[in-house]
Structure formats: C-alpha cells, structure tokens
Nucleic acid binder design. Sequence first.
DNA 1: CGTCCGCTTGACTCAGATCAAACTTGGTGG
DNA 2: CCACCAAGTTTGATCTGAGTCAAGCGGACG
Lengths: 192, 192
Amino acid sequence: MSFEQLISSLSPKKIKIKKGESLFQQGDTIENLYFIVSGKIKLIRDTIDGNPVLLHMGHESEPLAEASLFSDSYHCSAIAESACELKTIKRHTILDFLEENPAAMMNLLAIFARQVRDLRTINEIKNIRSANERILSYLRCNIDINKELMLTQTLKDIAHRVGLTHETFYRELKKLEEAKVLQRMPDRIKLL
Amino acid sequence: MSFEQLISSLSPKKIKIKKGESLFQQGDTIENLYFIVSGKIKLIRDTIDGNPVLLHMGHESEPLAEASLFSDSYHCSAIAESACELKTIKRHTILDFLEENPAAMMNLLAIFARQVRDLRTINEIKNIRSANERILSYLRCNIDINKELMLTQTLKDIAHRVGLTHETFYRELKKLEEAKVLQRMPDRIKLL
DNA sequence: CGTCCGCTTGACTCAGATCAAACTTGGTGG
DNA sequence: CCACCAAGTTTGATCTGAGTCAAGCGGACG
C-alpha cells in the first residue's frame, strides 16, 4: 500500500491553490497533512541568519512534508510553484489510524525506508562529476527489466533531479543517442 | 529513542571486519541488520547492464541498509572502506520487537521521516552551483542556536557530503573565513 | 620510527553553466 | 475553431569556476 492509498482511504478533502499562494508558513501549528495530486510546491526555510534556503520541491503524486506527522509546527513554508490540486487530511486522523493499525504502520515504515534508500542513491549519483556518467548511472538505477525508463515527468524535471541544467541534460542525451548507448522514445528512454 | 538505542536494547553481537572485506553480497538472503560503530562501508550495486554504481557510503554511528528490514535479499553489496566495528542483530528480532511495541515502531517512523527530510535538503543543496553558496546553505541548515556546527566528522567527509572536492571545500572555507562570514575552530565552525 | 591520512596550497584546464534565441506543444478563452 | 500564451525542448556561442594533478606539512597510530 502506498502513502497515497493510505491518505485516500481516510476520506481526505480536496483543495486547490494558485501559483504563488502559500499552503502553510514556517512556525504555523501543524494540523493537516497534504498529498500533491497535481502541480509543484516548493518548501522554503528561513534560516537563523536570515537567508532563505530551498529545502525541497514537491512534485505530483508525492506527499508533502511527511515529517510534519511527527512535529507540532512547520519548520518551513510551502509555496505553490504552479497551480496545484491537493488532498488534505487532519494530521491526527492519520496518527490515530496508524496507532490502531500496526500493520499499516509497518507498511508505512517500509515505504519510508525505501524512500531513504532512493534518496541516498540519488545523492551519491550527484557526486559524479561527469554529466555523461551521471546520466548513465541514473538510468542504470531506474530502468526496468526491459532496460527502459518510463517518462512520468518532463526531461527538465529529471535534469533537475540529477543536478544538471536542462541544457546540459538535453545535449548529453543527444550525444548518448548518437553514440547508440540509448534510444529516445516519446514516452520512455531505452538503454542499449 | 534512536535507531542505535533500539538495536542496542536487543543485545546485538559485535563484529569486526578489515578494510576491503565484504559484509554481504548482492543477492544474499537477508538475515542480519547492522549498525556501524566505527569505520566506513560502501554499498555497491551491480546494475542490469553490468556496470557497478556506488549507492551509499555508510559512516560511523549510522545504521547500514535499513531498507533490508523489509526485503528478503540484498539489492547491493557492502564492502568495508576501512577497518570497521559493527553491531549486528537478527532481522526478525527487530521486526518481532516492533510488531509487539507499536510505540517503538511509531518512534522509528519518526526517525525515518526525519531522515527523508534531511536527505531531501542535502539533495537540494547539491543543486546549488556555486561552492560558496552551497557551503553557506549547508551551514545555515545545520548550525545550532549558537550558529555553530560541531565537527563530528572530518572536513573531507563534509566536503563529500555537500558534493565538493576536498580541495575546493578547503579553499572556499578559507575565503569565507577571510571574508569574516565564519570562524573556524578546532572542533567547530561558527557563522558570524 | 615509519606509514597513512587529513589538511593545505598552487597552477592549469576544461566541462558544464550561462545567456540567448527559436521551435514545438498543449491548454485556455474568446 | 483559432489566437494566444506558457512551458518544455533544442541548439549555439561564450566563459568561468570547480575539478584535477601535484607537492608538502603534520598528527595519529601501530
């Protein structure tokens, strides 16, 4: 069971916010948990020395600020990068449900553990200097048994995910295709 | 309660391995869970197209491959980067304990959620191109209320964590100190 | 006492960032 | 149904700052 299914099973409300609007502010008391149905939301933290730091960019089909489950006030602010649809649910509704359903909690634990694993991988991949090798490593870690990566997001998003500018990413992709190490299709990339 | 305390409370065994030795191999059946007392261990995955990818470097005071709690076989191999001391415990000992102690499970969930949050932050920081700004962002996110970062690891390790070569890291640190934006002390760095 | 490793600094190089411009696509609203 | 706008994609020219290689110092540890 996924995090989305967990939230959906607890009859969430649906809300919409416009680009630039704020979902919550740093310091606010946490009452709700969110799941991004569509759009992008950035999490920004104002640090102790006054400078803001971008903590995370939340994409569609992702929960937002899961750690807020275990905290009383937000440690960052959420601002919509584009028009967004969200599912929202009371924080305590989930906590209560989990406490009464150890199996669901164990399931969520597995989801989080998997998240940690994936994030560490992408983190390590970002330490590879060469754009070429970085892209290949990303592909190697994310292709299915047919050696294909389904494009559920834009190439630009993937570029950002691996820590490259989209220009460099497009260029390297082209080089790799010309070198016959991969093949681009409208909805996927195949490693040869 | 930390992950370490959880493991320690279940009477783990202590083992030592030498540099270069393997703790487990990709494909092995998972029986044990590990916690690194000292040393470094790298996790390597042989991908479908034959090339190996470095997934993670585990440091002292960190659990190793937590996701293995929820899987039957290792998806990567573990090789000691230096001489290591480890605590080891049967996977099912932990799972059984968690199932009987929902409070401990909830606690672990919070630890994992926090992990996810921190990893996302470091991930986003690695997208900052300028070494200068990257270091400052890292500091801003990790300093305590005294605006100080305690050095529990080597500068070289921090350099790797933020995705810079140690040479560049040392140089920028020096520039920042000369520009009076931070102050270096033997055991910590203070932001001014 | 010797070795390893973290730390530091210098010189040089180049790969990826940046800036710029054009094309494509998809959606919106009149 | 079309005009228009926003955003993703693509390619080119240029440049700079982080990587690389190299060398030396000093402390820890066996």
